[in-house]
């Protein structure tokens, strides 16, 4: 579907159509509202966190059209017609995503503030075959997610563990 043309005056509220976690959602926002605030304040999906609001911490990471991005630096109006996955959409049919399961099992957090963003980055990188599977490549690919508590060691273990589960999962299915 071609997204419809958007034209908004400053201060004017416009309608934005999104697919959030598979559901069609309609928002009424002004053009200066970023996706992060639209998700949290309009759709009440507060799993996505605001850390720095400037692209520096990764707490706001969501998937847009399957790619991990910083939702604090993307306008909601720029997402017209796009598919967005937030941390609330990671679990399927009441079952945790392998990344969520692994974060639990490995205690891959302390305060938990960075965790939704960490898990969204991890889920994206495990689906991306351009990123190598070794620890150094995973660390590099995850470096856009800062953990103030320094839970990096367990985060890395969790990601690599989730990889094993996901690999055996696809093998099982085929």
């Amino acid at each position: 579907m071609e997204p419809s043309e958007t034209s908004a005056q400053a201060d004017e509220t416009v309608t934005v159509n999104l697919f959030v976690n598979g559901e069609p959602r309609q928002l009424q926002v002004t053009s200066n509202v970023v996706l992060l605030d639209a998700l949290r304040d309009e759709l009440h999906l507060t799993g996505t966190k605001k850390g720095c609001d400037h692209g520096q911490c990764g707490a706001c990471t969501v998937h847009v059209e399957g790619k991990a991005i910083n939702s604090c630096l993307r306008l909601a109006v720029m997402c017209e017609g796009q598919h967005i996955t937030t941390v609330e959409g990671l679990a399927r049919n009441g079952e945790l995503h392998p990344v969520q399961r692994a974060f639990l099992d490995h205690d891959a957090y302390q305060c938990g503030y960075c965790t939704p963003g960490q898990m969204m980055s991890a889920a994206a990188l495990l689906e991306d075959d351009r990123i190598a599977a070794d620890d150094a490549s995973v660390r590099e690919a995850m470096s856009g997610n800062i953990c103030r508590c320094g839970a990096y060691k367990n985060i890395l273990e969790a990601v690599q563990d989730a990889r094993q589960v996901m690999v055996s999962g696809t093998e099982g299915r085929s």
């Binding site: 997204p3 043309e5 958007t6 034209s7 908004a8 005056q9 400053a10 201060d11 004017e12 416009v14 002004t30 053009s31 200066n32 970023v34 306008l75 109006v77 017209e80």
Partner: peptide, 8 residues
């Protein structure tokens, strides 16, 4: 953030 008009 300040307001601005937006066009595609």
């Amino acid at each position: 953030m300040r307001t601005f008009a937006y066009r595609t």
